[in-house]
Design a protein around this nucleic acid. Structure first.
Lengths: 201, 201, 201, 201
DNA sequence: CGATAATCGAGACGGTACGTCAGGTCTTAGG
DNA sequence: CCTAAGACCTGACGTACCGTCTCGATTATCG
């Protein structure tokens, strides 16, 4: 679990400690409800009821629905999947593999809807965007790392703007989720070719 | 104005005709409010009040807030800008120009917030996504056309997957808006190079 | 029904009229609940639920719980009893009769509790006090009237301060309710004698 | 200080003794807050915060807000005034004096509001009513005593129902506070005359 | 004198109710 | 028959307090 959010119990001077039981129940309930009903139908009241917790307990620790979702992601409660390109030495093949995995995941309409919900949450909390891209493997460790390795291996030109490359490829996935076009596994090669293959004559 | 939505006046038998005044007032009010407060704070009630219209008048013609927004876009009430790459014969230069224009537009935080709102609206109505990409110049006429012209001119390989290319480049922009990283004009070349330049050694 | 409160439908320009069904259901539910649970346990939420009405419908028409109670009283929904001294020509006998009726009424602990609740409501809304004293017969028509008649009949001295007399006698009842001492029917004569009988030697 | 409430330190076996500092701080804070904000806005949480005391410390020693108020009164923390009729041998004059003092006290709207708050507290705890009437001089020692002295002095008939007389006169004051009519000093004579003067012809 | 135990401050907890906002539907009056 | 106005029921919002419980520290008595 990456701890990225603000809801740390802090130093605790005196007084009862924060209830780990409540925290877990809230994260779990939020995760189940967003997966079932989508971000738009997610309510603090519903989460509190399902977690058998008072609403104030949620408001005490999270300033907003989206912050709560961010922690669900950071805590791996909401999405177990963590995509990352392998490193076989063949960049095109590795990216295609990675892309295909994601496409397979998004083939399930439930998963696609979940990611759509997470994009919605990202809009009022960039932290969610960060967590989401992490899970998709587009974080600094995974995709960035693979590109840097390719540069080091002499597979990719040294002056390639890796940041831009990552945003392009991640954004390409997002677009297909937003406009509901979807990602077919066969698209994987098209995307990778469009990105890395020789385009200009 | 492209007419893409469902709110056609229809055949009409008897009775008063649909009030064009009301329609315009609603679209204008919705546009002003979303620009001012963002999609999350946009309410039907607020629109009705500002347009001096009853709520049912809105519900009669639009099934949802996002459908209303889609029509605002189609009607050019919400966004006057219509980006499109020029065609000077030099694809890289043309794309860079287009990208730079968009980056300049998004340099204004208000505009960035507006687009972020439109992405939010896109999530519960793909029609908004369509309209939005149109306005950004990523629709069939503009960006696709430019790529097809490049293929025809022999500037781009014939087997390039244009669809994927467009989604990559559009998605790249979206990503930067969602995660609030922003697009600096200087990024334009990086993006275009990352997409079209020679990457592999 | 005396109409003393502010919740008049007003002029009504256009739009749906105020629902009489809702108004009645609210008054009835409030009356039942205050009689059952007391003013302290009376909640707007509970009234709304029992009346099958939305909370805003209550807040639209009454500014506070106590204003609602005042209207329950004015509407004779909460208390059907309306005490008033008879006029047989014998003031002492008439007052004793009246007092005895009230004592009998308050003999039922439920009634005593209800009046106690109404005193509580009176404290944050003097309108309730007015309505309550009306019902007890201490309003201008009943007790005041009887005293004026006694003066006219030469039964009572002309310079008697009627206002003070009424407040004394009403307050005497209130005291016994507040301190839970209670009013026994036998007290009636003691009170009336204490008030009107020859005290000084 | 009369000790009438339940908060006795009890036998105590071992362990730390009850903190007198905490007790005083709580009584003082409660008194200040009820005087400032009224009984309806008085909260245990607010008292605890102002007294720099934990909520359980309050709940440990007092079962309810009203019990705490009762002790504030018994402890003379909340009201320093203790009214009592003098005994000059002239009952009418003495009562008038006493009444006038109370009327003067209630002339200050803050005092009137305080007494109103105490009546509210009396409703859910008759002990408060007892303490309140004590402070107003309507307890067994003061007003009752004065009446008994008058009987002994032959000023008042021996068969006068003193209890009822006291309730009438106290209730008369209460009424004026509850219905916010107020007591003007000039009313004093009217009340006393209404009570004791020759009424019947 | 050290163990025992009650108290104290602090504050988190599961709850209930608050008063408000907005949703989407309906009813009425006017044109 | 459409439009404006607006009332209706519903449901969620975020907040304030409730009364209880759980800490860790302090304090005083008892064995």
């Amino acid at each position: 679990m990456r701890e990225t959010t603000t809801s740390t119990p802090a130093g605790r001077g005196r007084g009862a400690a924060r209830s780990e039981r409540a925290r877990q129940a809230i994260l779990t309930s939020a995760s189940e409800l967003i997966a079932r009903d989508g971000y738009e139908h997610l309510t603090i009241e519903g989460i509190a009821a399902r977690a058998k917790v008072g609403k104030p307990t949620i408001y005490r620790w999270w300033p907003s629905k989206s912050a709560l979702i961010a922690e669900c992601l950071a805590d791996d409660t909401l999405m177990q999947e963590d995509f990352a390109p392998p490193d076989t030495g063949d960049l095109l093949a590795d990216l295609t593999t990675w892309y295909r995995d994601i496409a397979a995941f998004l083939g399930d309409p439930g998963n696609a809807a979940l990611i759509r919900s997470l994009i919605a949450a990202s809009i009022d909390n960039p932290l969610v965007a960060t967590e989401l891209t992490q899970h998709l493997g587009a974080g600094p460790e995974a995709l960035h790392g693979r590109f840097r390795a390719a540069v080091a291996a002499g597979e990719l030109r040294a002056d390639v703007p890796i940041e831009a490359l990552v945003d392009l490829i991640t954004g390409g996935i997002m677009m297909r989720i937003i406009d509901r076009t979807g990602l077919r596994p066969g698209d994987s090669e098209a995307f990778v070719r469009a990105l890395l293959g020789p385009l200009l004559t």
